[in-house]
Write a protein that binds this DNA or RNA. Structure first.
Lengths: 131, 131
DNA sequence: ATGCATTCAATGCACAAGCATTTAATGCGT
DNA sequence: ACGCATTAAATGCTTGTGCATTGAATGCAT
């Protein structure tokens, strides 16, 4: 792969990402009052519900799935809690840790927003193979 | 393409983008004092030099190549000017417009940063076909 | 020529992000 | 048991971003 190919691959990737994020941000915000990262976190929590017994997640577990710094994630969770979409609770076995759990409102909000996200992603990605 | 495929394509795209941007940001900042967007703008200016007679660009022309809002771009150019990497000059035929031109320092900085950018991109993209 | 919508770029403002620091809890070595 | 490095998460601070607005210049219709 030549440098020019690498660069044009990068530009394409970058432009695509920007376009999708921009659309997602607008749609999710307008229709559901959520930012892209907020939705992603809710999404991880919902995904994880199937796997985890109690639906509790350490903040750091969520960090793995979302490309945000630890501080950004901490504040994001604070925002979600303030909005009533998640709860933070102490965790018994390591009292430094914080468990994050979805509230009913959070589950509902996520299920409302999910079709919107899917639609936007489909619009951008459905008929393409990354080229 | 199923919804699940769409979503996993999106996650992959997103993770890839985040990883590359993160590396680029760190390397460009540490080694050359440039952010990713700053570099992109310099890059467009350099690219355009070959095509344009005088190397002058309207702000809005740059906007097309960089996924930033108009206001963000305006401030970014102000930063570049403050750093001595570009010049802003009035444009005669439409006095609302602003021409942006590379300074020598800007050209030099770009040429220093270019290999760093290429290296990072190669590290991430060289042996892949987008998925 | 005058008025009015439009366009270019800059700016006020609010908010989100990262870095560095802080606070609290753990665990390891002695 | 005590001290010390380490880890989890929150917070202060600075910076960058977008939205909405502003100010200036343009162009078009009358």
């Amino acid at each position: 792969m030549t440098d020019n190919e690498v660069v044009s691959t990068w530009r394409e990737l970058s432009a695509r990402h920007a376009a999708i994020v921009s659309d997602l941000e607008r749609e999710l915000h307008e229709r559901h009052g959520l930012g892209v990262s907020e939705f992603e976190v809710l999404d991880r929590l919902v995904d994880g519900l199937c796997l985890s017994s109690d639906g509790k997640f350490r903040v750091q577990e969520l960090a793995a799935g979302v490309p945000l710094s630890q501080s950004a994630l901490s504040r994001l969770i604070a925002r979600l809690e303030k909005a009533g979409l998640v709860l933070r609770s102490m965790c018994a076995d390591d009292r430094r840790g914080v468990f994050v759990t979805l509230t009913d409102a959070g589950r509902i909000r996520h299920s409302e927003a999910l079709p919107t996200q899917r639609r936007v992603l489909r619009d951008h990605l459905a008929a393409t193979s990354a080229g």
